[in-house]
């Protein structure tokens, strides 16, 4: 009959094992941005100023079958004159790997303020549109999009 002897573990061996365990934790799957991250990002962009959403109209699907290409369109009621125009529009998503989707920089030469693009959504989530006006104020609007098939590949 074979006998197994349980050897006491040296300190060095113990540390090596602990180190390996630590590494395993460090490479846990990449976390998705949460609503808190988006709230923090919005605060960073706007300096915490509360937005007025009456001027922004969003056009997004309520249900997106394919998260790889979700239409996002916004229309902002602005005269787009040299002293009153929309400087920038930020699109943020609170369930994607990173909150930022795209930032549009506008100029009065456009004469109107709207734009359309397509974005990826990894799961059902809220999409925020933040408008920065030339007078330093901000407006925001948000919409929830239900996503049937996520669009983050893999």
């Amino acid at each position: 009959m074979k006998t197994y002897v349980l050897k006491p573990m040296s300190r060095r061996q113990a540390m090596t094992l602990l180190g390996a365990a630590g590494l395993t934790c460090a490479v846990a799957p990449a976390a998705l941005a949460g609503p808190e991250d988006v709230a923090a990002r919005i605060a960073e962009l706007t300096g915490g100023a509360a937005g007025d959403d009456a001027l922004i109209t969003l056009d997004m699907p309520e249900i997106a079958e394919n998260g790889n290409a979700v239409k996002v369109a916004f229309d902002i009621d602005s005269p787009m004159t040299a002293d009153n125009y929309v400087k920038a529009v930020h699109i943020l998503a609170d369930g994607n790997p990173e909150p930022d989707v795209a930032t549009f920089n506008f100029s009065p030469a456009m004469g109107a303020c709207y734009a359309t693009t397509r974005m990826r959504l990894s799961k059902t989530q809220n999409v925020h549109v933040i408008a920065a006006f030339s007078d330093g104020s901000f407006g925001s609007a948000e919409a929830t999009v239900k996503v049937t098939i996520g669009g983050c590949g893999g």
């Binding site: 795209a102 920089n105 506008f106 456009m110 004469g111 693009t117 974005m119």
Partner: peptide
Amino acid sequence: VMSVDLKPSVSANPFFTFPFT
């Protein structure tokens, strides 16, 4: 007249429409 900063969350084949006077 107009510029966009894109992140990986923008779909393949980036598409934009925008107005101009």
